[in-house]
Amino acid sequence: MFRRKQAPTSAAVSSSSSSGGVNHPAQAIARVKKEYVECQSDEGMKSCNIKLSLVEDSFVKLRGEIPGPLGTPFEGGVFQLLIDIPQNYPFNPPIVKFETKVWHPNVSSQTGVICLDILKDQWAAAMTLRTVMLSIQALMSTPEPDDPQDAVVANQYRSNREEYNRTAKYWTDVYARPGVSEDDVKIKQLMDMGFDEAKCKTALAKAKGNVEQAIEHLFA
């Protein structure tokens, strides 16, 4: 319930990427809690295997998990999303991006930023994180190359669909395989340069997980 309390200053309202939660009005937090509870028992999300979890129990940072839709190059992958709740939630949309790298016209292959209308000017306060997750899954099934986030991927999608499918599937295999750890991804990256697995593991361990240093070790 929206209780009257001390109004946040306009400066506090404008910094939408704050992660602390101390500046979030109680209303925003209560709303996220409500959504979180509803999501845990939501049949629609369960049947799609979409999951929502908390980061540090704060209710201002959450993590989403979406399985790659069947019949797409993302099939078989599990994609992690980072969700930031702005202070004036639900009047402003949640800030959502892919944490798992994905090759998709509407997602930046560099930063994971998503181009989706309901995360921007078509957000409505009656929408929820559930709406967002289901919409992102739908976007994975049906890219919108005319409203791209990543121009390179969008061009490839339009001009060479076969290559797009291959690249997207390769990225899914490399970055989004369930149970694949961050180290596995790095080792795969090193092995792709022509080194054998054992050497790559040793180099990565020596470099304490830093890929560039591991490469130096391998070439040394």
Partner: peptide
Amino acid sequence: MASSAYSDFDVIAQEERVRDEIAAS
């Protein structure tokens, strides 16, 4: 869009700044 000099997020950030200015005044 990534292809233009300003992304949608830049535009939204700009709109937010304008709104904040209006709010402050």
